[in-house]
């Protein structure tokens, strides 16, 4: 069904922008262009940018918009091949070997325990072997070790995964790979070279208003505009933790809960903790509102 959907649709940038918008993601021109290219060229996308700017959300939106199955690998320090691709089911292998000992020769199962049946597939291999077009998000790749990244090169470039003792798996579907990074460490040049690069910064005023409106359609437009303006100002204040788009949404939600429709000193004081996560920053922000 998904394949038909793709073949019937003429893919252009207008369509990409529109369909992402319909799926609650407000893209800018750069995002539209990169997603369009990634879909057309079947290239992975490497997304960088500060936290809370919609990197992860973009991959989910792409999956929703193009009706693809979604897989996710959340990287962390020390994540291994086994957790990304899969691992041998040792217990099953041992049981099988024991069974082969007691069975008679007629019902004796195959001796080979290094078959696909004994391999537990993890997200990357599952995404590769999936029958439907899919999106796989490899989130925060910068937190994984360099070895994991090196191993991913084969998957990103050759669209293949090699598992020792089992063989090489070729990609079975139209898989879109999205990697995100918060630049905690520099990624390998080889990884970057295989990907289209997208940097998502904090949004402009207009785009942020649009984003918030999609998330909170019932919020008063006046409040949304005020809060977003305040947020844009806060982001320019050189704080130790710059608030994200998520914080803007949360701020408006908490303002609504307090039945506040205006951003004044009192309402800011009551709700600023939703946005600012540091005492020094809080004082700085309150001072600026006091002025």
């Amino acid at each position: 069904m998904n394949g038909d959907f793709m073949s019937e649709t003429i893919l252009d940038t207008d369509y990409v922008g529109k369909i992402l918008g319909n799926n609650n993601y407000i893209p800018d021109e750069t995002i539209i262009n990169v997603v369009f290219l990634a879909l057309s060229l079947q290239k992975p996308i490497l997304i960088e940018g500060p936290p809370g700017t919609g990197k992860t959300e973009l991959s989910k939106a792409v999956a929703r918009a193009f009706m693809r199955d979604f897989f996710r690998v959340q990287c962390y320090e020390g994540i291994t091949f086994e957790q990304i691709v899969g691992e041998w089911n040792y217990q099953k292998q041992l049981l099988h070997l024991e069974m082969s000992k007691i069975s008679d020769t007629i019902t004796k199962p195959d001796d080979d325990v290094f078959r696909e049946d004994f391999f537990i597939k993890r997200p990357l291999l599952s995404a590769f072997m999936n029958d439907n077009p899919s999106v796989i998000l490899i989130d925060e790749i910068d937190k994984a070790d360099e070895e994991v990244e090196s191993f991913l090169l084969e998957a990103l470039g050759e669209k293949q995964i090699t598992v020792n003792d089992l063989g090489t798996f070729d990609l079975k579907n139209d898989l879109m790979v999205i990697l995100t990074s918060n630049s905690q460490r520099q990624l390998l040049d080889e990884t970057k070279d295989r990907c289209l690069y997208l940097y998502i910064d904090y949004p402009s005023l207009e785009r942020e208003v649009e984003i918030v409106k999609t998330h909170l359609p019932e919020a008063s437009p006046h409040l949304v505009e005020d809060v977003v303006k305040a947020m844009q100002k806060i982001r320019r204040m050189n704080l130790s933790k710059v608030p994200s788009i998520r914080a803007t949404v949360d701020w408006i939600k908490s303002m609504t809960m307090f039945n506040k429709n205006d951003l004044n000193e009192d309402s800011v004081k009551k709700t600023i903790n939703v946005v600012i996560k540091n005492e020094e920053d809080r004082e700085k922000v309150l001072k600026s509102f006091h002025k």
């Binding site: 893919l11 252009d12 940038t13 207008d14 021109e29 750069t30 262009n33 990169v34 369009f36 290219l37 057309s40 060229l41 490497l46 040049d189 970057k192 070279d193 289209l196 690069y197 997208l198």
Partner: peptide
């Protein structure tokens, strides 16, 4: 593809070349 899909050449080349 950019020409056909109405893409922005500058943004597309930036996505390809910039890392």
């Amino acid at each position: 593809l950019i020409e056909k899909g109405g893409g922005n050449l500058k943004e597309a080349l930036a996505a390809i070349y910039l890392k």
